[in-house]
Simulated assay, not measured.
Amino acid sequence: MAAPRVEVTKPGPRLGAIAVVMSDGHVLLARRRNPPDAGLWGFPGGHVEYGETALAAAARELKEETGIVATPVDYITNIDVILWDADGNPAVQYLLAVVLCEYVGGTPCPADDVEEAAWVPFDHVRRGDIPMSDRVIEVINQAIALRR
Score class of each variant (00 low, 15 high):
Lys10Cys: 02
Pro72Gln: 07
Val98Leu: 02
Trp41Leu: 02
Glu61Pro: 00
Trp84Met: 15
Leu83Gln: 12
Asp37Asn: 14
Leu29Trp: 11
Val99Lys: 00
Gln93Tyr: 06
Ile82Trp: 01
Arg33Phe: 09
Ala91Glu: 14
Gly25Met: 01
Ala70Ser: 06
Glu7Val: 15
Gly16Asn: 12
Tyr94Val: 07
Trp84Ile: 13
Leu15Tyr: 12
Asn34Glu: 14
Ala17Cys: 08
Ala86Glu: 13
Val8Ile: 14
Glu116His: 13
Leu146Gly: 02
Leu40Asn: 03
Arg14His: 10
Ile144Cys: 05
Trp119Tyr: 04
Gly46Thr: 03
Asn141Thr: 03
Gly51Phe: 04
Ile76Val: 09
Val104Ile: 14
Leu83Ile: 13
Leu96Ala: 08
Ala118Val: 01
Leu100Thr: 03
His26Asp: 08
Val99Trp: 00
Ile82Cys: 04
Val120Ala: 02
Glu65Arg: 07
Asp134Asn: 09
Asp74Asn: 13
Ile68Phe: 07
Val125Glu: 08
Leu96Lys: 12
Lys63Gln: 12
Arg33Gly: 05
Ala3Tyr: 11
Met22Ser: 11
Thr53Gln: 00
Ala54His: 12
Ala56Phe: 00
Lys10Leu: 12
Gly67Ser: 09
Pro44Trp: 06
Trp119Glu: 06
Asn78Val: 13
Arg31Leu: 08
Ile130Glu: 00
Trp84Pro: 00
Glu65Trp: 08
Leu83Cys: 02
Ala118His: 02
Pro108Thr: 08
Gly12Pro: 00
Asp24Thr: 10
Tyr94Phe: 15
Leu95Glu: 14
Pro90Arg: 01
Gly106His: 06
Asp85Tyr: 08
Leu55Asp: 12
Ile18Thr: 13
Ala143Gln: 03
Ile144Asp: 03
Ala145Asn: 11
Ile137Asn: 10
His47Lys: 12
Pro44Leu: 07
Arg31Trp: 02
Pro110His: 07
Thr107Gly: 02
Glu7Leu: 15
Arg14Ile: 13
Gln142Thr: 05
His26Val: 03
Asp74Lys: 12
Arg135Met: 10
Lys10Pro: 04
Leu96Trp: 12
Pro131Glu: 10
Val73Arg: 12
Asn34Pro: 00
Ala59Ile: 01
Arg148Lys: 15
Asp74Ser: 15
Gly12Ala: 07
Ile130Asp: 00
Asp37Phe: 15
Tyr50Thr: 13
Pro90Ile: 04
Asp123Glu: 14
Pro35Trp: 04
Trp84His: 06
Asp74Ile: 05
Val114Gly: 04
Arg33Asn: 11
Arg31Phe: 07
Gly45Pro: 06
Gly45Asn: 06
Gly51Met: 05
Arg33Glu: 14
Gly46Arg: 07
Ala57Phe: 01
Gly46Cys: 07
Pro131His: 10
Val8Phe: 11
Val20Pro: 03
Ile18Lys: 11
Asn34Val: 12
Asp112Glu: 14
Pro11Trp: 02
Pro108Glu: 06
Glu52Cys: 03
Glu61Leu: 03
Phe43Glu: 10
Gly128Gln: 08
Ser133Val: 14
Val125Lys: 07
Ile130Pro: 01
Tyr75Asp: 05
Phe43Thr: 05
Trp84Asp: 01
Gly16Gln: 10
Ile130Val: 05
Trp84Ala: 01
Asp123Ala: 07
Ala56Asn: 10
Val48Gly: 04
Gly46Phe: 05
Asp123Thr: 07
Asn78Gly: 11
Val114Asn: 09
Gly67Leu: 04
Val69His: 08
Arg5Cys: 03
Gly106Lys: 04
